[in-house]
């Protein structure tokens, strides 16, 4: 090949390299652009409706003013319920996988199934809870909504508990055994303490995940226009109220939906930032 031919080929390779670099930069800006656009729209639309009334008044009928107190309280109640039900089960299952059955067949099957549950469509979970709780009980209830969310909490907590306990050095377990501690005390007193930051992070991530979930609540806890703390009755929640209000033709309902969306997003972002800083501070110490 002539010198010119080589030079031309080199130039074309460099050009292609330049184009690819440019495209990858463009792709990154494109991806980050959506985050900026969505957050900007949320702040723009949501902040104008943010006032004290949002946190102190009930959801209004169309055409009058009101707030989001009952869905906010409902969301908190459902989240607490889901965490109370889901966290112990998740931690225990994760403990078995990391401590007792690290190498047995059950663990690898559970790990595989848990990973599937982790990304299973949440609306299917809603249908499942409808079938096993709402239909037999004959009515929608906050309890069913909490259980549906708990089903979403479990796989997240299982995953992080197993990962975090696996990271605990074996020397700690051996030391505990050598002073005569039985296994369960070694796990609960020593391993849990060593893995605490990571396990708390898992719970926070689970809360972040369920606090915006709408689909599994649509036909479990349904919605409630009024103040209610009765877990045996339909219960309002922020995501479902946003869904209902945003699709309504009323301007003031739509404005409230935007405000609710802003509150949820800020809560989720705050949770994930706290979880992230917990992990990084755990790593440092």
């Amino acid at each position: 090949m002539s010198v010119q031919g080589l030079a031309a080929r080199y130039a074309s390779r460099r050009r292609r390299n330049g184009v690819a670099k440019g495209l990858s930069l463009a792709a990154t800006l494109f991806g980050l652009g959506w985050l900026v656009l969505i957050l900007a729209a949320l702040l723009w639309q949501g902040f104008s409706g943010l006032s004290l009334a949002v946190f102190t008044q009930m959801t209004p009928p169309p055409g009058s003013s009101g707030g989001l107190l009952n869905p906010i309280v409902g969301s908190l109640a459902l989240t607490v319920l889901a965490v109370v039900i889901g966290t112990p089960i998740g931690i225990l299952a994760g403990t078995y996988m990391a401590e007792y059955g690290r190498h047995d067949g059950l663990t690898s099957v559970v790990r595989f199934i848990n990973d599937i549950l982790l990304s299973a469509p949440s609306i299917v979970i809603g249908l499942f809870i409808y079938e096993v709780m709402v239909a037999p009980m004959g009515h929608f209830s906050g309890l069913a909504g909490g259980v549906a969310l708990a089903v979403l909490v479990i796989p997240v907590v299982v995953r992080t508990t197993e990962d975090m306990l696996t990271l605990v050095p074996n020397a700690l377990r051996e030391a505990a055994t050598s002073i005569g501690l039985p296994r369960y005390l070694a796990i609960t007193r020593i391993c849990y303490r060593a893995a605490r930051a990571g396990m708390v992070t898992g719970v926070l991530l689970a809360v972040a995940r369920i606090s915006g979930e709408t689909a599994p609540l649509l036909f479990t806890s349904l919605n409630n226009q009024f103040w209610s703390t009765n877990l045996n009755a339909p219960m309002a929640s922020l995501p479902v109220v946003i869904f209902q209000f945003a699709l309504s033709p009323y301007k003031d309902w739509q404005a409230l939906a935007w405000t609710g969306a802003l509150i949820i997003t800020l809560a989720v972002l705050a949770l994930s930032i706290i979880a992230r800083s917990l992990v990084s501070s755990g790593k440092r110490s």
Binding site: I38, G212, T214, A215, A257, T265
Partner: peptide, 15 residues
């Protein structure tokens, strides 16, 4: 971006 709840994408998408 992955953590934003899907209902937020929905309301943003619609309006």
């Amino acid at each position: 971006l992955a953590g934003i709840p899907s209902i937020i994408y929905g309301i943003w998408g619609l309006f």
